[in-house]
Nucleic acid binder design. Sequence first.
RNA 1: UGGGGUGUAGCCAAGCGGUAAGGCACGGGACUUUGACUCCCGCAUUCCCAGGUUCGAAUCCUGGCACCCCAGCCA
Length: 563
Amino acid sequence: MTETDKIPPPNFIRNIIREDLKQNKNNGSVHTRFPPEPNGYLHVGHAKSICLNFGIAAENKGGLCNLRFDDTNPEKEDVEYTKAIMADVRWLGFDWEDRLYYASDYFEQLYDYAVQLIKDGKAYIDSLSAEQMREYRGTLTKPGRESPDRNRSVEENLDLFRRMRAGEFDEGEYLVRAKIDMTSPNINMRDPAIYRIKKANHHRTGDRWCIYPMYDYTHCISDALEGITHSICTLEFEDHRPLYDWCLDQLPVPCHPQQIEFARLNLNYTVMSKRKLNELVNEGYVTGWDDPRMPTIVGMRRRGYTPAAIRDFCERIGVTKNDTVIDMSVLENSVREDLDETARRVMAVLRPLRVVITNYPENSTEELDAPYHPNKPEMGSRRVPFSRVIYIEQDDFMENPPKKFFRLSPGAEVRLRYAYFIKCEEVIKDKQTGAVIELRCSYDPQTKGGNAPDGRKVKGTLHWVSADHAFKSEVRLFDRLFTVPVPDGEGDWKSVINPGSVEVLKDACLEPGLAGAKPEERFQFERLGYFCADHKDSTQGKPVFNRTVTLRDSWAKVDKQVK
RNA sequence: UGGGGUGUAGCCAAGCGGUAAGGCACGGGACUUUGACUCCCGCAUUCCCAGGUUCGAAUCCUGGCACCCCAGCCA
């Protein structure tokens, strides 16, 4: 994302558009839209669609992308979601300018068009019950039968439709159907419903309507009314395209957009359906839609993912019609790549082990200079306090180290980053448990800053925090939400939820400057990973941190091989 | 044994009749005051399978096979 002039990789949709432009189709314009239903929060799958639609608009001269809420089902939708969706799209870095639309804005026009269809004998009012509808529809292999109401007169249809709108009937009593073909091999064309009665309050139109248009009928017309040129949607709508085209062919709409379908995103070790995400929230498996383990935009944001990283990820995975599952490592790679460039390095000890530097003067403190980024001096530096008692990571000490372990062990010498070389002289253990509770080390005053004048080298460099100056706070570590790569493939997907997907460390010791971290501020805790100050649980002067992603860890591999 | 789609490496993905890009992952090495970053090197004689057309096929033709989607008054 640093190169603004980077040419996006080709994909079949961009190829179609390039070809259309060459033919001067749509007078050379490109107009897309992102059409979420406001019935839940957005997830990375939506991010793929957002990046595609807004991206295509942005990379073509004069290209535009609308934000349109597909709000035709009042029972499931809510303003809470529209607000959250707008915030997410904006946070991802996209702008619909003044083109915010709602399908509900078109209800009157949609009604008029339906009247038109009825007058033209292309739609009728049906009184079949839902169960009867199902029977008449036939099956995948057997054609359907025509409803007895199919040849109701235009006058009667018109009257009934008017009375439906007027609220004279109960839900389910009547329904408007397109008159297409009950024997079509495509079930979507067997006289699909286009209007149903719902005596529900709509989040925008209130109680003005008691009949609501169906998706297939609404979506294509909304696209046409907005002058959309390319209506990009996911694969499951491929079968609906003939219906999309049919509706537009019957009506005097301003234009006829081209529907193009692509495969939705699947990520391993997580689930992506709104229904399942909803269950995770409602049944308490996670703390909310914005739980840092969730693949939602708000969840990833809270975890510390950046908009640039998510955009980069969406670019890398490509756009095709293949049914695929993307490896989580691709996402993590995008995040690390962005954060490596932008995050300041600081020190934090997650699981503290007390170290007393026996030959360092008591009650003495010095400040050591530590740059914020090893490769970017322009990011500046800060002073970190050093004193006689410090904490190091428990993992950085082993009493009986395996080969190639170049951290601290009895008699070994290591560097404390930006400070001194220390040597482990004595190991103090708990008399009861035998656990190592303290290390006694000596330091070499000659090695201040981290280099020895005599040229001797150490293999390991450890991060540390001065005990008296440590800012103690909470740090949360996250792991994958599921224990198997494709939970959807499991009979009971909830049986493979990872019980250890979150670990809360209450006693982490952070360098003092971190007490001033702002909500959503991101850092690299050296040698541990990238962390983000939680915007929800942090309080003034007491930020708590979420681990976004670990650093790549080649020691973990060596360690595994040794064992 | 209805219709619509899709099959290129462990995971993604370019390719569109001229002799298999790239990314992730993985393996090896260099550098290193983060076992990070960075940098080198390696990683499909073969494109779901079988035939055919062609001087030449992942690309064209024929026939199989596998997987995904569709029977809401959801989107």
